[in-house]
Every structure is written in C-alpha cells, then in structure tokens.
Write a protein that binds this DNA or RNA. Sequence first.
DNA 1: GTTAGCACTCTCGCCCGGCGAGTGCTAACG
DNA 2: CGTTAGCACTCGCCGGGCGAGAGTGCTAAC
Lengths: 344, 344
Amino acid sequence: MPDANRKKQVLRAIIDRYIDTAEPVSSKSLSAELSLSPATIRNEMAELEETGLLEQPHTSAGRVPTVAAYRLYVDELMQRYRLTLRETEELNRALRNKIDDLGKLIAYAGRAASELFGLPAFALTRPAAETTVSRFELIAVDPRSFIIVALMSDESVKNKLVRVVSPIPDGLLTRLSAILNASFTGLTAAAISETLIASAERASGDRLGLTAIAAQFLIETLSDSGGGEYALSGASRLINYPEFRDPDRASRTLEYLSGGAPPGGVMPDPEDGRREKISIGTENEAEELHGSSIIVTRYALGDGADLLVGVVGPTRMDYARLLSRLTYIARGLAGLPPDGGQEL
Amino acid sequence: MPDANRKKQVLRAIIDRYIDTAEPVSSKSLSAELSLSPATIRNEMAELEETGLLEQPHTSAGRVPTVAAYRLYVDELMQRYRLTLRETEELNRALRNKIDDLGKLIAYAGRAASELFGLPAFALTRPAAETTVSRFELIAVDPRSFIIVALMSDESVKNKLVRVVSPIPDGLLTRLSAILNASFTGLTAAAISETLIASAERASGDRLGLTAIAAQFLIETLSDSGGGEYALSGASRLINYPEFRDPDRASRTLEYLSGGAPPGGVMPDPEDGRREKISIGTENEAEELHGSSIIVTRYALGDGADLLVGVVGPTRMDYARLLSRLTYIARGLAGLPPDGGQEL
DNA sequence: GTTAGCACTCTCGCCCGGCGAGTGCTAACG
DNA sequence: CGTTAGCACTCGCCGGGCGAGAGTGCTAAC
C-alpha cells in the first residue's frame, strides 16, 4: 500500500497547481496528471483535510493548501528548481553592472531582485557584530573646513565634511589625526566614553571642539552601521497578484513593508548553518504578513558581515524557483563565483 | 451683473468639495454654502460645462472638475493654505533629525514627505550643471589597496576603495595624487580624454594602471552626480485613495513611479523664477500619470545645485495644503530658515 | 436674473433563478 | 480492500428585472 507516499504526491500536485493558478484545485483537474480517478483523489483530499493540510473555501470548491502544507512542501516535497541556461544568462546580465559601493549595492540588490521576480524584494547587510574604524584620515579643505574619512573594519569608507566658524590652526589636524588613530581605532560604539573624548581633546590642544565633532561622527557611524543598511524595492508589485487585489489588504501589507525596517523574524539565524530561511504566512511575526511569505538568503561578505536578500510574495509563491534564483543572485552580489548551471 | 465672478466662486466650491469627497458634486449640496438655489447653481454648472471646466460622469450625476478646472484652480482660485501652529510643529518635529550626508538627505526627504502627506513623495538633487572634482586625496590602506577620496565642487565627498594585485611602490601614491590634483580637478566628464589619461599615466610613472582606475572612478562620479540622486518613498500609499482602488490602474501608475527615475517633465524650470511646479493629470508627460497630479518644489542648495521635493497624488488632491506643507519642508531640508507661521 | 416644480434619466443595490463546478456518499468492481 | 463509476447535493457566480434615489434640464412663474 503506497499510501503515505501517494498522499504526499497528491499534496505536492495540489500545491504545484495552486501556485500556478491561485485557484482552488479540484480532484478532476489532477486526475490525468496523477493517473488516478477523481474519486480516489477526493478520498485522499478528504484525509489531507483532516490532517490540516488542505482546506476548502466552501463546500463545493476545490482544495487550497494551508500554511502547514506549504511548510511541508518547502521542507520535503518541492523539487529543487534547476535554473535554465536562459535564466542564468538573464541573471548574469542583471548582475553584470555590479557596484563596489556597499551602500549602493544594497539598493541595487533589492531593485534587481524585485525586477527579476516581479515581486517586492529587499536587501540588507548585517555587519559583523563589532564594526570598528581601522583608520582615520583628515583632509583639509579650506581654513575653516575639513573632511573626516574613516576606513571601517569591513572595508567600507565613511566620510563627513566638517565646517567650523574660526580658522583651524596649523598642525591641529595632523595632531588630531594622530590622536584619533591612536585612541579611537578598533573601538566599538559602546567603548567611547566622555573621559576618552576629553583626554583626546586635551592631548591634541584642540580648542575648537573638533575632537568632539569627530567623536560624534564616529559614534553615529558605528551605531549606524550596527544597524546595517536596508533597502526595499518594488513593494507595489505585490498588487499584481490576485490575492492582493483587495486594496485594503494590499495596503496593510505594503504599509508594513515600506516601514523602513526589515520584516521581523525573517532573518536566517547566523548560528545554524542554513543559508536561507522561508517564512510562510502566519509563521511571520508581523500580523500584516500573515498572508505573505518571505524567502531570505544569506551570504557572507567576508569579515563576519552578511548580505541578506529577500523576496516577498503571496503564500502561494513559487518557492522552488524563487529560492534558486535568489540564491543565485545573492551569490553573484556577494562576489562569489555564481557557478554557472549547478544544481542548487 | 456679478456673473464671471460668481462663476468662479461656483467652480471653486465644486473643486473644494470634490477634493474633499472624491464624488461628483451636486447643485443641491452647494446651495447652502453659496446661498443660491440649486437651480441657479445648475445654470452656472451648465455654462461651466460648456466652457470645458466641468464634466458629468453620466447624465444624472453631479459634476466633476476637468483638468482645465484644476489648472484654473491652482493658478487663480485656490486660497493659499496657511499652516496651523500644530502643523508647523509636526513638520518641525519631522525635520528635526536632519542629515548632513546628501545621499541620505534625499532618501530622508522623500520618506518624510511621504509620511507627512500619506502620499508617494520623491526628492532629488539637481546639481549645478558642471560638477567637478575640486580636490583629490589618496589614502594608502595596505600595500595593495588605497582609497580615492574626491571632494566635489558641490562639497559632497565621494570615495572608492581600490585594490590591485601587486604591491604599490613607495611614492607612487604621492605622485599620482599630485598629478590628479594638477590635471583632473575642475574638469567635467566630457573634458576627460584618453590622451589626458595617458599623459598623466606617463608623468606618474604608474605601471599598475592606477591612473586609469582613478580616471574611471572620476568619470563615473562626474556623470553619476550629473544625474543627481533620486529617491521615491511610499509609492504604495497611492492605493489608499479611491481613485486608485482599481488595481490595474494603481499598478500601472506605481510601476511607472517606481521606475527609478524622476517623473518626466515635472521639474520646475530653473530659468523661470517659480519655485514650484504643479502638473495636473493629462498635463503630465507620462501617460501613466494622466490620472495623477504632481507638485514639485525647488530649493537652492547653494552653488547652483537644487533640491527638489515632490508629491504625487490623485488629480483631486488638496493642492493648497500640500503646496504649503511641501514648501515648508523643502525649505527646512534645504537649510533655510523655515520662517515659522508665515503666509506662503 | 432667480427660483420652484416637474418629468426624465441613469446608476445602484437587490432579489431571484438557472447554471456549472465540485464535492461526498454509496454501491459496484477487480 | 483499494479503486472507481454514478448520482444527488451544495454553493458560488452570473445575468436579468425591478424599485429607489439622486440629480439633472426644462419650463414657467416670480
């Protein structure tokens, strides 16, 4: 009796079909595909419904997968989708104009993903816990202004133009630079204290408050990159999907997504080895996302920092294909060899 | 005979009402407000309709303003809206966390505007025609990498981390820096020629192609800031408005707005003195925006560069109020004194 | 020039019945 | 015992018809 196994096949067929059509799937429509009579399929369906894997919008409609069914699907059932040559070419083309600037990378990644998937997508960096400044450089612009350039431990570069009212005495910038490099490199935001700033100020003979300004910049920069950068693109593409035709529903979801912060709880935990995380419907923390699913893939940028790219769609989204493509572009963006047409 | 004048009053009342309710306005509903009988108002309406300022969705519905009517409204009829104290406080609060970094300013401006208006908003900088680099600085990081820092004529700072395969000889960076500052400052993108690069390369004794890399960076930076920065926020807020309940329509508009480029033809011309420009419905270049209106305000950032902030809404949007608020925040963002509760 | 009155038009919401899709159940079949 | 054919049943969807209501245009009186 191939029972348990066949049940899964039926379930998979239902989910595949539903992902495709967004409409309740009937026993009859699967009959040919599964080489079983509608009646048999109905029996299986009835049992799957008892298990909580299927549900009926109303008597006499087809069945629709539940969240539990999708969970089972992504964990066991779905066939890893293999990118076609044409797809990899398309993805490569999209990746070709890569960007060195990390800030832009994030915006770009989100946009590229969104365009390629026709769905909202986001990207963010999660820096290594302790980003620090590894090097300062002060560049005089004119007597009353200079630029602070900070080379961060993750190799990004931050800068700020500083303007003061009175002219900066000769040599002050050089002394200040030496002191900054001596005292403020390698520090986390928490380690910067008032006393440290005060002693640096004394040591440099700085009477203009430049040290304080530099320290302020430093703190902002450190805590800023502590949050990482986040960009969401193409939020409005969601409304192309029938499940979001209802404007109220779409509105709530979009409002949440556009909130400027990454969706809660969807990030793959760096501790477990998984590169990707899929959050389905009600598994999402945010109530606004209970009707959506999110796939996030993670890639190491070196130095403990991560690049995360995610795509948001209706719960019935094409998990297999999206996962493959997302993995591919996240790799590409993270600078790893994308490895042509490998099976993912 | 107070005819022409009264006609305008009627028209204004209709537009005010329609902005508020989004529903065709009937003669009866205006009767009290205008102290005229419905019949009289109907007569005026009929004439306004002949002039092309009103139209009827169907025979027995109220009237709806046409694009021409809105045009007349914003040019002559509308009462400048005076910000309330509460509003200025709210705007001030939103502006308080201002930002020095120009790149972030743009993103922030768009977001703030969008949140304050509940509508999509965008911001962009339009640099002075000829942004150039006024100063280069090269910072060695380790033997195989260094940072190029370019101080631009508009006082923004750009940088790039450069990595090469073989170690960089002592002194090369200093020589290169001198040459860059001597030969490449004050140039527009168009002025950078192959021969210029080649001669700089010879002069610096550079065998690693660093000069070429620097030139490349320079060209990118110049042409990049030639376009200015652009950020759109809150596109999806549009669907909260009844005229965009139709998902297809909303989708088309949103797709266009999210295209990553500022909407065509909506920028105030720097030549005429106007600070703001309002594009109503079919006045917009893009067919996708024929159902929307856009208000853009411009503010000088000094040095010939402009900050533009715009808001997108349905054609019946509250022009007067939005214009006032937009002007206020654009000023605030551009660093001008926002000038309390002045009449705008 | 303004207004009251009235007939007319058109939309919208509602109810209703027929249709079709899909099911659950039962009974027959291998 | 699992599978399948047959059949009655349920329920959403669609189209037509109808009445109510809103708003107008016109005419005639003020």
